[in-house]
Amino acid sequence: MTDIKTWIDSELQSNDVVLFMKGTPDAPMCGFSSRVVQILDHLGAPYKGINVLESGELRQGIKDYSNWPTIPQLYVKGEFIGGCDIVTEMFQSGELKTLLSEKTLA
């Protein structure tokens, strides 16, 4: 398998909105991941959910990739947006909707 950073890079290049999470969008396995899924579903933003529990290497690799110690992690057009707190704050202030519509994604 290519090294994890290269794999993450390619996922972020080939998907506009990526959510690294615990579990899957249909079956989130952590309250924080589930909250971000609900927010994205509410905004109707298409996204790719990647379950970090499937690989220890990915679970650690994504934390190193963004220098962010927790999961979930949301990326839009390859840019790290934040974890559950920041995504919730941006959703409540309307910034997330603006960001997604600016990038013509929702």
Partner: peptide, 9 residues
Amino acid sequence: RVQQHQMIY
């Protein structure tokens, strides 16, 4: 916000 939180971490 990300940078601020990273400072706390």
